[in-house]
Amino acid sequence: MGMEIKSLNIGLPKIQNFQQRQYRTAIDKKPIQKGWLTKNGFVNDGVANTDFHGGEDRAVCFYVFEHYKEWEKEFNRDLPLPSFGENLTVAGMDEKSVCIGDIFQIGDSVVQITQGRIPCATISQHNNVDVFLKRVIETCKTGYFARVLQEGMITNESKIILLKRHPLKISVHFTIDTFFHCMEEERIEKILQVKELANVMRNKLTKRLLKLKANL
């Protein structure tokens, strides 16, 4: 399957209910026909938890279309697009094939992949599946973020073109697997060589690397 947009989605934070509790989230995004992408994300889009989302390094959130069928089969339920709060549901661009620093043209905009998504409990709450967050982390099917190099219009029929593959070829999957499952010095050092890595992720990995070295 070639690279393509399956759904273009935006939404602002709002209050939702879960098990008689309220929480503020922007995960409940809705499909749109077209949107203007700025350095800080899509117009009329927003995030609630700035620890995990948002900022120029995490302006656009992607999730992989092919994962939907896998999750639907595992949990025996339908998952409407977008169930993960992503701006772009994309096919042909999974975490193993997309690398940190890769540059893509999408419609009139140009974006650069910056980090894998660090998911939070909102995924479980929004989809009403208690183990969803746990399974997303275990499988590294987290999705990923990008910064905007060139602002522009994106439609749900815009073409996705790979403009430049990063020479180090450190995949999103490798970074997420390292972060959650395999915190080894050599792996962290490889990731930190990618200067295009999002600053938030760089800081987290640098702290862990220093802690590992201190324990030697």
Rank of each mutant, 00 (worst) to 15 (best):
R165I: 01
I170Y: 06
L163Q: 08
Q150Y: 13
K159C: 04
V172M: 06
M183N: 12
Q150F: 05
T178Y: 00
I170Q: 07
A146E: 04
C182S: 03
S158A: 15
S158C: 09
L162A: 06
E151C: 02
M153G: 06
G143P: 06
M153R: 11
L168P: 05
F174L: 09
K169G: 10
R147K: 12
K164T: 01
G152R: 07
S158Y: 11
S171I: 10
G143R: 12
T155Y: 09
T178A: 02
T155C: 06
F180S: 07
I160D: 04
K141Q: 08
K141G: 01
E157M: 13
S171A: 02
C182N: 14
D177M: 11
L163T: 02
L168A: 07
M153Y: 15
L149T: 00
V148C: 04
S158V: 06
T175K: 11
L149H: 00
E157A: 05
I176K: 11
I160V: 11
Q150R: 08
I154K: 02
M183E: 08
L168H: 07
I154Q: 01
Q150I: 07
T155M: 10
E157K: 11
I154C: 03
E157Q: 15
T155Q: 09
T142W: 05
F174H: 11
L149S: 00
R165H: 11
I161D: 09
K159Q: 12
G152P: 07
H173M: 09
Q150W: 14
V148I: 02
K169P: 03
T175V: 15
F179S: 05
R165Q: 14
H166E: 04
D177P: 07
Y144D: 02
H181F: 03
K164A: 15
I170L: 02
H166P: 00
T175Q: 13
L162E: 02
S171W: 05
L163P: 00
K164F: 08
C182K: 10
S171K: 06
M153S: 11
K169M: 13
D177R: 13
I161V: 13
F179L: 15
K169C: 12
F179C: 04
S171Q: 13
F145T: 01
L163V: 03
K159Y: 03
T175I: 12
L163S: 04
H173Q: 03
M153F: 15
I154D: 03
F179G: 00
S171R: 10
Q150A: 06
M183K: 15
M153K: 13
F145P: 05
H181E: 00
H181Y: 02
L162C: 00
H173W: 12
I161T: 13
V148W: 00
G143I: 06
I161M: 14
H166V: 02
I176Q: 11
R147E: 05
H173F: 14
T155V: 01
S171D: 12
T175E: 15
F145N: 04
T142S: 10
R147W: 03
Y144V: 10
I176N: 09
R147H: 04
K159H: 09
T142G: 10
T178I: 03
L163D: 03
H166G: 00
F180L: 04
G143A: 07
G152E: 01
M153H: 12
P167V: 06
